[in-house]
Protein backbone atom coordinates (compact mmCIF):
# COMPACT_ATOMS: atom_id res chain seq x y z
CA UNK A 1 0.00 0.00 0.00
CA UNK A 2 3.08 2.21 0.00
CA UNK A 3 2.62 3.73 -3.41
CA UNK A 4 -1.09 3.83 -3.71
CA UNK A 5 -2.37 7.18 -4.90
CA UNK A 6 -5.69 8.57 -3.75
CA UNK A 7 -6.86 11.82 -5.22
CA UNK A 8 -9.94 13.55 -3.90
CA UNK A 9 -11.66 16.67 -5.05
CA UNK A 10 -8.68 17.93 -7.00
CA UNK A 11 -9.11 21.28 -8.72
CA UNK A 12 -6.21 22.79 -10.69
CA UNK A 13 -6.02 26.26 -12.16
CA UNK A 14 -3.78 28.27 -14.46
CA UNK A 15 -4.61 31.80 -13.38
CA UNK A 16 -8.35 31.91 -13.92
CA UNK A 17 -8.45 28.90 -16.27
CA UNK A 18 -9.72 25.82 -14.49
CA UNK A 19 -7.85 22.83 -15.94
CA UNK A 20 -9.11 20.12 -13.56
CA UNK A 21 -12.55 20.14 -12.00
CA UNK A 22 -13.00 17.94 -8.98
CA UNK A 23 -11.03 14.80 -9.78
CA UNK A 24 -11.60 11.78 -7.55
CA UNK A 25 -9.56 8.73 -8.35
CA UNK A 26 -7.80 5.96 -6.53
CA UNK A 27 -4.79 4.48 -8.30
CA UNK A 28 -3.57 1.10 -7.23
CA UNK A 29 0.06 0.38 -6.62
CA UNK A 30 2.17 -1.75 -8.92
CA UNK A 31 -0.17 -1.56 -11.84
CA UNK A 32 -0.09 0.52 -14.99
CA UNK A 33 -2.78 3.15 -15.17
CA UNK A 34 -3.34 4.83 -18.52
CA UNK A 35 -4.73 8.34 -18.78
CA UNK A 36 -6.48 9.06 -22.07
CA UNK A 37 -8.51 11.92 -23.45
CA UNK A 38 -8.46 14.56 -26.17
CA UNK A 39 -5.79 17.21 -26.31
CA UNK A 40 -6.14 19.94 -23.70
CA UNK A 41 -8.40 17.91 -21.40
CA UNK A 42 -5.97 18.16 -18.49
CA UNK A 43 -4.04 14.88 -18.63
CA UNK A 44 -0.63 16.49 -18.20
CA UNK A 45 -1.96 18.81 -15.55
CA UNK A 46 -3.34 15.82 -13.66
CA UNK A 47 -0.10 13.89 -13.50
CA UNK A 48 1.84 17.07 -12.70
CA UNK A 49 -0.34 17.49 -9.64
CA UNK A 50 0.82 14.11 -8.42
CA UNK A 51 4.49 15.06 -8.19
CA UNK A 52 3.84 18.65 -7.16
CA UNK A 53 5.14 20.04 -10.43
CA UNK A 54 1.94 21.93 -11.16
CA UNK A 55 2.81 24.50 -8.53
CA UNK A 56 6.04 25.57 -10.23
CA UNK A 57 4.11 27.11 -13.12
CA UNK A 58 3.63 30.81 -12.37
CA UNK A 59 0.03 31.65 -11.43
CA UNK A 60 -0.87 27.97 -11.08
CA UNK A 61 -3.06 27.05 -8.12
CA UNK A 62 -4.69 23.89 -6.87
CA UNK A 63 -7.00 22.62 -4.20
CA UNK A 64 -7.97 19.18 -3.02
CA UNK A 65 -6.12 16.24 -1.59
CA UNK A 66 -3.54 13.86 -3.03
CA UNK A 67 -2.55 10.95 -0.80
CA UNK A 68 0.55 8.93 -1.56
CA UNK A 69 0.72 5.82 0.58
CA UNK A 70 -1.80 7.40 2.92
CA UNK A 71 0.08 10.67 3.38
CA UNK A 72 -1.18 13.96 1.98
CA UNK A 73 1.57 15.28 -0.29
CA UNK A 74 0.06 18.77 -0.04
CA UNK A 75 -0.02 18.92 3.73
CA UNK A 76 1.91 21.77 5.26
CA UNK A 77 4.78 19.60 6.49
CA UNK A 78 5.24 17.69 3.21
CA UNK A 79 8.47 18.55 1.44
CA UNK A 80 8.00 18.80 -2.34
CA UNK A 81 11.66 17.91 -2.91
CA UNK A 82 11.38 14.60 -1.07
CA UNK A 83 8.07 13.83 -2.76
CA UNK A 84 9.55 14.41 -6.20
CA UNK A 85 12.41 12.09 -5.37
CA UNK A 86 9.87 9.34 -4.80
CA UNK A 87 7.99 10.09 -8.00
CA UNK A 88 9.86 10.00 -11.28
CA UNK A 89 8.60 11.72 -14.38
CA UNK A 90 9.18 11.42 -18.10
CA UNK A 91 7.98 14.43 -20.02
CA UNK A 92 6.06 14.83 -23.23
CA UNK A 93 9.13 16.26 -24.99
CA UNK A 94 12.58 14.85 -24.31
CA UNK A 95 14.53 17.23 -22.10
CA UNK A 96 18.02 15.90 -21.38
CA UNK A 97 20.51 18.35 -19.88
CA UNK A 98 22.55 19.61 -22.85
CA UNK A 99 25.62 20.46 -20.80
CA UNK A 100 25.89 16.94 -19.44
CA UNK A 101 27.14 13.76 -21.09
CA UNK A 102 24.90 10.75 -21.57
CA UNK A 103 26.41 9.19 -18.48
CA UNK A 104 25.99 12.30 -16.37
CA UNK A 105 22.41 12.77 -17.51
CA UNK A 106 21.54 9.35 -16.14
CA UNK A 107 23.60 9.93 -13.02
CA UNK A 108 22.20 13.42 -12.37
CA UNK A 109 19.45 12.31 -10.02
CA UNK A 110 21.75 9.89 -8.23
CA UNK A 111 24.25 12.63 -7.55
CA UNK A 112 21.46 14.78 -6.12
CA UNK A 113 20.72 11.89 -3.77
CA UNK A 114 24.30 11.86 -2.60
CA UNK A 115 25.47 8.75 -4.46
CA UNK A 116 28.96 9.65 -5.60
CA UNK A 117 30.98 6.42 -5.67
CA UNK A 118 32.07 5.69 -9.22
CA UNK A 119 31.38 1.96 -8.88
CA UNK A 120 27.83 2.46 -7.66
CA UNK A 121 27.14 5.03 -10.34
CA UNK A 122 28.58 2.88 -13.14
CA UNK A 123 26.36 -0.04 -12.19
CA UNK A 124 23.16 1.96 -11.89
CA UNK A 125 23.81 3.94 -15.07
CA UNK A 126 24.35 0.77 -17.06
CA UNK A 127 21.30 -0.94 -15.59
CA UNK A 128 19.07 2.08 -16.20
CA UNK A 129 20.22 2.45 -19.78
CA UNK A 130 19.63 -1.25 -20.38
CA UNK A 131 16.13 -0.99 -18.94
CA UNK A 132 15.29 1.92 -21.20
CA UNK A 133 16.61 -0.03 -24.19
CA UNK A 134 19.30 2.51 -24.96
CA UNK A 135 22.44 0.79 -23.70
CA UNK A 136 23.33 -0.92 -26.95
CA UNK A 137 23.24 2.34 -28.87
CA UNK A 138 25.24 4.46 -26.45
CA UNK A 139 27.58 2.17 -24.57
CA UNK A 140 30.53 3.29 -26.68
CA UNK A 141 29.85 7.00 -26.34
CA UNK A 142 28.74 7.57 -22.78
CA UNK A 143 30.76 10.77 -22.71
CA UNK A 144 29.01 12.33 -25.69
CA UNK A 145 26.53 15.09 -24.95
CA UNK A 146 22.99 14.05 -24.12
CA UNK A 147 21.62 16.16 -26.93
CA UNK A 148 23.81 14.52 -29.56
CA UNK A 149 21.24 11.72 -29.66
CA UNK A 150 18.15 11.52 -31.87
CA UNK A 151 14.81 12.60 -30.43
CA UNK A 152 13.73 9.06 -29.68
CA UNK A 153 17.07 8.20 -28.12
CA UNK A 154 16.87 11.36 -26.02
CA UNK A 155 13.49 10.26 -24.72
CA UNK A 156 14.87 6.88 -23.73
CA UNK A 157 17.74 8.71 -22.06
CA UNK A 158 15.20 10.67 -20.04
CA UNK A 159 13.48 7.44 -19.11
CA UNK A 160 16.82 6.05 -17.91
CA UNK A 161 17.37 9.25 -15.94
CA UNK A 162 14.04 8.79 -14.20
CA UNK A 163 14.61 5.08 -13.56
CA UNK A 164 18.07 5.58 -12.11
CA UNK A 165 16.80 7.11 -8.88
CA UNK A 166 14.49 4.12 -8.30
CA UNK A 167 11.31 6.05 -7.50
CA UNK A 168 8.16 4.39 -6.19
CA UNK A 169 5.93 5.93 -8.80
CA UNK A 170 6.79 6.84 -12.37
CA UNK A 171 4.72 9.27 -14.38
CA UNK A 172 4.98 9.06 -18.15
CA UNK A 173 3.58 11.92 -20.18
CA UNK A 174 3.18 10.55 -23.70
CA UNK A 175 6.64 8.97 -23.61
CA UNK A 176 6.34 7.42 -27.05
CA UNK A 177 5.05 10.35 -29.06
CA UNK A 178 8.53 10.90 -30.52
CA UNK A 179 9.50 7.26 -30.91
CA UNK A 180 9.51 4.84 -33.82
CA UNK A 181 7.51 1.61 -33.53
CA UNK A 182 10.54 -0.44 -32.53
CA UNK A 183 11.56 1.80 -29.63
CA UNK A 184 7.90 2.13 -28.71
CA UNK A 185 7.72 -1.65 -28.47
CA UNK A 186 10.80 -1.64 -26.27
CA UNK A 187 9.31 0.97 -23.97
CA UNK A 188 6.07 -0.97 -23.68
CA UNK A 189 8.04 -4.07 -22.76
CA UNK A 190 9.83 -1.97 -20.19
CA UNK A 191 6.51 -0.92 -18.68
CA UNK A 192 5.63 -4.57 -18.16
CA UNK A 193 8.93 -5.07 -16.36
CA UNK A 194 8.54 -1.94 -14.29
CA UNK A 195 5.08 -2.56 -12.97
CA UNK A 196 6.39 -5.45 -10.88
CA UNK A 197 8.08 -2.88 -8.69
CA UNK A 198 6.64 0.50 -9.53
CA UNK A 199 3.32 2.25 -9.70
CA UNK A 200 3.02 3.63 -13.19
CA UNK A 201 0.78 6.28 -14.68
CA UNK A 202 1.06 6.81 -18.40
CA UNK A 203 -0.60 9.49 -20.49
CA UNK A 204 -1.12 8.40 -24.05
CA UNK A 205 -2.99 9.42 -27.17
CA UNK A 206 -2.63 5.97 -28.59
CA UNK A 207 -5.65 3.79 -27.79
CA UNK A 208 -3.90 0.59 -28.81
CA UNK A 209 -1.05 1.44 -26.51
CA UNK A 210 -3.38 2.09 -23.60
CA UNK A 211 -5.11 -1.20 -24.28
CA UNK A 212 -1.81 -3.05 -24.57
CA UNK A 213 0.10 -1.79 -21.58
CA UNK A 214 -2.36 -0.69 -18.92
CA UNK A 215 -4.38 -2.49 -16.30
CA UNK A 216 -6.59 0.47 -15.56
CA UNK A 217 -7.62 3.37 -17.74
CA UNK A 218 -8.88 6.81 -16.83
CA UNK A 219 -10.72 8.86 -19.44
CA UNK A 220 -10.56 12.62 -19.03
CA UNK A 221 -12.68 15.17 -20.84
CA UNK A 222 -12.63 18.94 -20.41
CA UNK A 223 -10.93 18.76 -17.06
CA UNK A 224 -13.20 16.08 -15.63
CA UNK A 225 -12.67 12.41 -15.01
CA UNK A 226 -15.42 10.81 -17.04
CA UNK A 227 -14.69 7.17 -16.40
CA UNK A 228 -12.13 5.06 -14.58
CA UNK A 229 -12.13 1.30 -14.69
CA UNK A 230 -10.22 -1.80 -15.65
CA UNK A 231 -8.74 -1.24 -19.09
CA UNK A 232 -10.54 -4.25 -20.45
CA UNK A 233 -13.89 -2.90 -19.33
CA UNK A 234 -13.22 0.60 -20.60
CA UNK A 235 -12.42 -0.73 -24.05
CA UNK A 236 -15.08 -3.43 -24.28
CA UNK A 237 -18.03 -2.12 -22.32
CA UNK A 238 -17.65 1.54 -21.40
CA UNK A 239 -20.44 2.83 -19.17
CA UNK A 240 -20.38 6.40 -20.42
CA UNK A 241 -21.38 7.34 -23.96
CA UNK A 242 -18.62 9.92 -24.16
CA UNK A 243 -16.00 7.28 -23.40
CA UNK A 244 -17.40 5.05 -26.08
CA UNK A 245 -17.43 7.90 -28.58
CA UNK A 246 -13.83 8.72 -27.81
CA UNK A 247 -12.37 5.23 -27.98
CA UNK A 248 -14.24 4.39 -31.12
CA UNK A 249 -12.94 7.55 -32.69
CA UNK A 250 -16.28 9.30 -33.04
CA UNK A 251 -14.97 12.17 -30.98
CA UNK A 252 -13.54 15.34 -32.52
Amino acid sequence: MEAEIKVSNLYAYFGSICALRGINISIKEKVVTAVIGPSGCGKSTFIRCINRLHEVVPEAKLSGEVLLGGKDIYSADADPILIRRKIGMVFQRPNPFPALSIYDNVAAGLKLNGIKRKNDLDGIVERSLKMSALWGEVKDKLNASGVSLSGGQQQRLCIARALAVAPEVILFDEPCSALDPISTGKIEELLFQLKKNYTIIIVTHNMQQAARVSDYTAFFLLGELVEFDKTQDIFTKPKDNRTEDYITGRFG
Binding site: N51, L53, V56, R85, F91, F97, L112, C158, A162
Partner: peptide, 19 residues
Protein backbone atom coordinates in the same frame (compact mmCIF):
# COMPACT_ATOMS: atom_id res chain seq x y z
CA UNK B 1 11.31 22.04 -19.49
CA UNK B 2 14.94 22.09 -18.34
CA UNK B 3 14.03 23.40 -14.91
CA UNK B 4 11.19 20.93 -14.63
CA UNK B 5 13.49 18.07 -15.56
CA UNK B 6 15.70 18.94 -12.61
CA UNK B 7 12.79 19.58 -10.26
CA UNK B 8 11.18 16.26 -11.16
CA UNK B 9 14.39 14.52 -10.10
CA UNK B 10 13.98 16.10 -6.70
CA UNK B 11 16.45 18.92 -7.11
CA UNK B 12 16.35 21.79 -4.66
CA UNK B 13 16.12 25.32 -5.92
CA UNK B 14 19.87 25.76 -5.95
CA UNK B 15 20.44 22.35 -7.54
CA UNK B 16 17.91 23.22 -10.22
CA UNK B 17 19.79 26.41 -10.98
CA UNK B 18 23.09 24.58 -11.15
CA UNK B 19 21.89 21.59 -13.14
Amino acid sequence: AQREAALALGATRWETIRL
